[in-house]
Nucleic acid binder design. Sequence first.
DNA 1: TGGATGACGTTCT
DNA 2: AAGAACGCCATCC
Length: 111
Amino acid sequence: MSSSVPAGWSRYYDVVARIPRGRVTTYGAIARLAGAPRTARHVGWALAALHGKKTHGIPWHRVLGSRGKGFAGISLPDESGTLQRRKLVAEKIRFDQRGRVLLEEFGWTGR
DNA sequence: TGGATGACGTTCT
DNA sequence: AAGAACGCCATCC
């Protein structure tokens, strides 16, 4: 169907699907693992396309934006961001008072 | 075809 | 240290 997402996006989904529970990663890292180090934004579109879909099995909530070296934070706007944080907390992910996650502890680098 | 867009990232001020 | 601006690159109109 033409309503389906672009073929290349499957590569991003494959990487996101490999993120273990209780771990998070960044858009840039996913793009890098997918073989496109300069396409961090595209990862966001791919995940945005999943929003509203049925149970796709993609843990989109484990994807955060780089909030500086070694840290990550939710880049989504209001409601979606709150929902994402809620899901992460449910997976024992800890946020500091600045709303960021320590990648050294919860970060996933493709392993 | 060209120009604007965006769930980002890095660098500069 | 915190905030703003620029750069990237496929997709949309």
